[in-house]
Design a protein around this nucleic acid. Structure first.
Lengths: 365, 365
DNA sequence: TTATCGAATGAGACCGGTCTCAATCACTAA
DNA sequence: TTAGTGATTGAGACCGGTCTCATTCGATAA
């Protein structure tokens, strides 16, 4: 049984040195695992450390070394299964390379994101992985680079920030997903996404400051136009930023006279609320409404019918971006890399032909 | 535009002091926001800091103060919606009080948990919140106390560690859930939980080192016995530690001749796999098998039928434990508190009467 | 006019490590 | 025998802040 006389001050290198009757420098050498020491001194110091129950102060250590062994991660929403899975990918890669991870949540709010980045930098993390919530304001991300720490971007590219970036093939897969719907005969397809916007009205791509969201909308619109759908922009709905907001959007959509025959949801949280809303409106999937969502969330396979999903390689996304960052942390010098991971669509049972003869509704404007 | 001549070394208090033509001590006073300075000096220093783009080094700061403004959180599995929701509760409470959160994942492995605790202590977090994965080995948790930092326990109590603890009413709610099943006529109810054990065979409570798991099993067994079920211990299944393992357990359970008529799952991840397995075996819920699960995961309301769940106040759990810890961090002195939050059961459509006339299967032993 | 006082500031120790550089030592080669 | 060598060890500066204590200064009181 060890009893600590003073519980306030912790045991330091000097204490151990004194106990082992060597100099502070020598004790530090064996405790820190650097330099050379004789075997006798090593065992002496080690036993002294054990007796005193010495614990290194990582803070002091990383203050002198400038390294902390920590990777800072800022994600939009850790409760979104998409991010929590990506984070596992990051954590696994980090642990394998001997790094630890500090996690911060931005809630997709640029100010919170800035504060988180500031905090992590001031804690002297070795590198950062961020899912930028906006492409308009990247000053804080520039600061990271300026501070000499490597930065890597997850899921969202920033055109004018040339750093390691790993994204998925959003444009292409959005096109493929939309085409599935078009091929099934749908001509009134609504795309619902989470971008914060006034009134959930979509005007043009200029409003969209997140690359992944933008690419998906582009892909969606391209295929719609290609299918001869007139002004598909009217069918893009923004503002599904929370379950409550999504419910509002969904309700408005489903109770409208001009109800879409198919919906494409930009993440599983949105899809879930839409699915619930469809049920509540007494509608059936896919007989009344077809549904496809991004992210193969666990629930999508247990509904009746199971949902057709865009299955992004989320774990790999996290793992790759972490590996890219770690390679740089280990001293690798190279031009920033932009990885785009291929994405697969899992067709299940939520897509069918449109309920009635397709009416290409026209609204004069 | 600011251009940094040397990007390696960062701007320090001394640099600002020199620029403002005051002493380091004075500059530190205004930059650190302590002590007294004249208004003129304050503005001088502030402008100098702005010109140089000074950023405080939190590491150095917390080395001297001993405080970091960080709460360390160690959870079992951040991908489990239960934990990610609890973490949101913690984060919200922390942010409101001006604290930041560092998250670490233990994967329910005691060694990883120990390493995480060690890391967080060495990073000098102000306090810790832990969901202990084992009650057998709590030496590392004792160490936290010894290091003078407050510790609070989340979701799992430790009998011989007297610290702030917030749990839910596991025993009682397990009894209520089991009673719902018993009242529906079930006499062959299986309880599936995630404890790591050889062979997934349950012998006795001595095997169970997690208080919440233990209480639930106790509650389950008590009600079963009360209902005249003979040796209900045989119906407890351990080892559902991952989707794969759960699938094995479920398959074995469902393909056995002596198939249970109802299943109680200890978390939503387990329930999901069981639900999938039930489907794959061509069985129906609740006609062939009734199902209740702990945690009101989002998917439980969209299945057909929706699942009856034990709805723990998860967010409140996280929020309360963080608040308890923060009060202590702010200097409040009081005896450790043990909060037990009440839990509610949401009855949906996954419970019905047992399929056939109940056969109380007897195995001579 | 001079002693007293409080506010503002400066000098320097300190936190707990790392790391450079010089000193010491045993031992080998000339 | 003695200079030369490499391996160990010790002394002390340093990282970037905080904080104690002494000093300076102007203003007020005696």
């Amino acid at each position: 049984m060890k009893n600590s006389t003073q519980k306030t001050r912790s045991v330091t290198v000097s204490d151990v040195a004194r106990e082992a009757k060597v100099s502070k420098a020598t004790a530090a050498r064996v405790l820190g695992g650097y330099g050379v020491v004789s075997d006798k001194v090593r065992t002496d110091v080690m036993t002294a450390a054990k007796t005193l129950d010495y614990r290194p102060n990582e803070l002091a250590r990383s203050m002198t070394t400038g390294k902390s062994g920590i990777i800072g991660v800022v994600v939009g929403d850790i409760e979104n299964p998409f991010f929590s899975l990506a984070v596992r990918g990051i954590t696994d890669a980090a642990r394998a390379a001997g790094f630890n991870v500090i996690l911060a949540n931005s809630g997709e709010q640029i100010e919170v994101e800035k504060a988180a980045v500031r905090l992590l930098i001031s804690k002297r993390v070795d590198g950062l992985i961020v899912t930028p919530s906006e492409s308009r304001d990247v000053s804080h991300l520039r600061d990271i680079n300026r501070s000499g720490r490597p930065l890597a971007l997850l899921d969202r590219a920033l055109p004018d920030l040339d750093v390691d970036t790993v994204t998925v093939d959003d444009l292409d897969v959005a096109m493929r997903a939309t085409r599935i719907l078009v091929d099934a005969g749908h001509r009134h397809i609504t795309y619902v996404t989470a971008v914060d916007a006034e009134g959930s009205e979509y005007q043009d791509l200029g409003q969209i400051y997140t690359s992944s969201v933008r690419e998906r909308i582009e892909g969606f619109l391209a295929v719609c136009r290609d299918a001869g759908i007139d002004r598909p922009e009217r069918y893009v709905r923004l503002g599904a930023t929370s379950p409550e907001e999504t419910r509002k959007v969904a309700t408005k959509l489903l109770s409208s006279l001009d109800r879409p025959t198919a919906i494409l949801a930009s993440d599983s949280l949105i899809a879930l609320e839409i699915f619930k809303a469809i049920r509540q409106h007494g509608l059936r999937v896919p007989e009344d409404i077809s549904l496809i969502t991004f992210h193969d969330a666990d629930w999508t396979s247990v509904t009746t019918p199971p949902i057709t999903v865009v299955d992004q390689p989320v774990y790999a996304l996290g793992k790759s971006v972490a590996e890219l960052l770690i390679r740089r942390l280990k001293g690798e010098v190279r031009a920033p890399e932009r990885l785009i991971l291929p994405t697969v669509i899992i067709e299940r049972g939520s897509v069918g032909p449109p309920a009635t003869a397709t009416q290409v509704s026209k609204i004069s404007g």
